[in-house]
């Protein structure tokens, strides 16, 4: 394992060694008139507390189904997902999702969008405390001055920042991100990746993120989970990303190890598991 020279930080991860989020022989099957359609087949994975894990794979490989089962939107056909030994059965604020399409309510301001969740999850907190939580998280993403703007007046990057603030305001144990930066321009995307890393380090939160951007996965995560193609997708390979934290994008890009891992991931996705229609 090659470690980059970093005077302040030598460990490669902030994660503990305790299994926190566990996928136990997870399968999802949809019955169809022509027989069962297996989306996911026997997913086993243990994510440690504080770990940053990215899932990559071609579209249609069941990444979103996997995420839906962690979030609790869908129930597995077989096996289970456990968070701190508790099987996940329904959506809840301990697993906050940042959706691909921003999903802010367009008729509420940035402040109100976050407040809606805070009010629902912490009903017993005094009003001042709720307001404080909302403003604190808007400040965290640098958007305190647009608190009273509606989403239509915000850029794509700002909207996604509000979504991240909304998710973190509820103090989740796991932050789930579904291709959160896919719709952003490259510069904004890089900015948000770095902000996300800072937030992740400060909050010591467990992150599960779906992406189809290999560079993004390598820059952000401790481990990259690569899915085989569906139907009946499995975990093909799990890649350890050894770069020291805090990570510096420029330095990482100069590291030969980065290209080694990148080529390995590309090889996995485009040679060994090339998409049928590409």
């Amino acid at each position: 394992m090659q470690v980059l020279n970093s005077p302040t930080q030598t460990s490669t991860s902030y994660a503990t060694q305790e299994p926190f989020l566990i996928f136990d022989n997870l399968s999802k099957v949809y019955p169809t008139p022509t027989g069962d359609f297996v989306v996911l087949d026997g997913i086993d994975l243990a994510i440690n507390e504080g770990e940053f894990v990215c899932v990559i794979g071609h579209s249609g490989c069941g990444k979103s189904t996997l995420l839906d089962m962690v979030a609790g939107f869908r129930q597995p056909t077989d096996g289970e997902v456990r968070l701190q030994t508790q099987p996940i059965q329904a959506p809840g604020p301990d697993r906050m999702v940042v959706f691909q399409n921003y999903s802010l309510l367009p008729w509420l301001t940035a402040y109100e969008n976050i407040y809606l969740g805070v009010k629902s999850v912490f009903p017993n907190k005094p009003e001042a405390a709720k307001k404080h939580i909302v403003m604190e998280h808007l400040e965290m993403v640098g958007l305190a001055d647009v608190a009273n703007k509606k989403p239509s007046a915000l850029s794509g990057g700002m909207k996604q920042r509000v979504c991240i603030a909304r998710a973190l305001a509820l103090r989740p144990k796991v932050l789930i991100l579904d291709e959160p930066f896919g719709a952003l321009d490259p510069i904004t995307r890089e900015e948000l990746q770095e902000e996300l890393l800072t937030i992740w380090r400060d909050h010591q939160i467990t992150v599960l993120m779906i992406t189809h951007d290999i560079d993004e996965a390598l820059f952000l995560s401790d481990r990259v989970v690569m899915m085989t193609n569906g139907p009946a997708a499995k975990i093909g390979e799990i890649m350890l990303v050894p770069f020291a934290r805090p990570r510096d994008r420029a330095r990482m890009m100069e590291d030969p190890k980065f290209y080694e891992l990148r080529n390995e991931a590309l090889d996995f996705l485009y040679n060994r598991h090339a998409h049928a229609d590409t």
């Binding site: 979030a71 939107f73 959706f99 309510l105 809606l116 999850v121």
Partner: peptide, 25 residues
């Protein structure tokens, strides 16, 4: 949009909150 319903489920909005903040608008 399914996204709004998912948001409501994650945030565990009450019935009335869902009605006035999501369904009706």
């Amino acid at each position: 949009p399914q996204d709004y319903n998912n948001v409501a489920r994650v945030l565990q909005l009450s019935k009335s909150e869902y009605f006035f903040k999501i369904l009706f608008p």
